[in-house]
């Protein structure tokens, strides 16, 4: 079984996004970039499937600038077999990304795609669903756990109010939520080994996908700031303020 894991290079989880003064977007120059945290969970799940003998080959793919190769190397250092890098400097929308990933998935003959449920930069949360639909595959979104049995995959999903279990015919797509697993740190020997693993280079044109954006970003602004209030002395004063000043209890 071949497992494909798409990953995205994003502003590091711990770095606060700064809006550019010309309101054209978020400033990404000279800031720490990392693999999207949910994608790390997806990579970990694929590596575990391989370690369990369920997956025979694991491929990590990223669509982005030259530096996206570093993100692919991170996946390789975690244990993925090989990489595919579709190089583009454009900030592409999920629809274009999904179309390119469909082309990659078909070329690779993937049986399972595991990917993050959302990227923490643009917060669309739509690439996984779009890719599944374009492939006409079933989807298990926001996975809490997965179990593969023959030609089917059982996915326990995080839903509002609890957990839901669905059974999908393979090939299938799963998006990873927080509790699916805890990603490993790559060891130094594995980081060294990853440098020798192959990364195939492609371009959007190779994949025959029209990447023209559908949305025009008119402006990007800071959110309305919330003013800090006051510090209260003790629990009694807190109750008094909430009851008599704010009137919310």
């Amino acid at each position: 079984m071949k497992v494909l894991v798409p990953v995205k290079r994003v502003l590091d989880y711990n770095v606060k996004a700064r809006v550019k003064s010309d309101k054209s977007g978020v400033d990404l120059s000279n800031v720490k970039m990392s693999m999207n945290p949910f994608d790390e969970i997806a990579v970990e799940e694929a590596v575990r499937l391989q370690e369990a003998g369920t997956a025979t080959e694991t491929i990590v793919v990223s669509i982005g600038p030259a530096k996206a190769q570093e993100t692919i190397r991170t996946g390789l250092a975690m244990g993925m077999d090989r990489g595919v890098h579709v190089q583009t400097d454009d900030d592409l929308e999920p629809l274009a990304i999904a179309k390119m990933l469909k082309a990659v998935a078909e070329a690779e003959g993937a049986d399972l795609i595991v990917m993050g449920k959302q990227a923490i930069d643009n917060d669309y949360g739509s690439t996984g669903g779009m890719l599944a639909a374009l492939l006409d595959w079933p989807i298990g979104s926001a996975a809490n756990s997965i179990a593969i049995d023959g030609g089917a995959i059982t996915v326990v999903k995080e839903i509002d109010g609890g957990l839901q279990t669905v059974k999908l015919q393979m090939p299938a797509l799963v998006t990873a939520d927080l509790r699916l697993n805890e990603p490993r740190y790559a060891s130094l020997p594995n980081i060294m080994k990853a440098k020798k693993k192959p990364i195939e280079a492609k371009t959007p044109a190779d994949l025959g996908v029209d990447t023209a954006p559908r949305l025009k970003t008119l402006k990007v602004t800071e959110p309305a700031a919330r003013e800090a209030g006051i510090k209260v002395e003790d629990a009694a004063q807190l109750v008094d303020k909430l009851k008599n000043e704010a009137g919310v209890i």
């Binding site: 643009n122 402006k219 959110p223």
Partner: peptide, 13 residues
């Protein structure tokens, strides 16, 4: 976007 640290105004074509 970015966990609400920025607000994007987008026009759909």
């Amino acid at each position: 976007i970015y966990a609400g640290n920025a607000m994007a105004t987008v026009q759909s074509t």
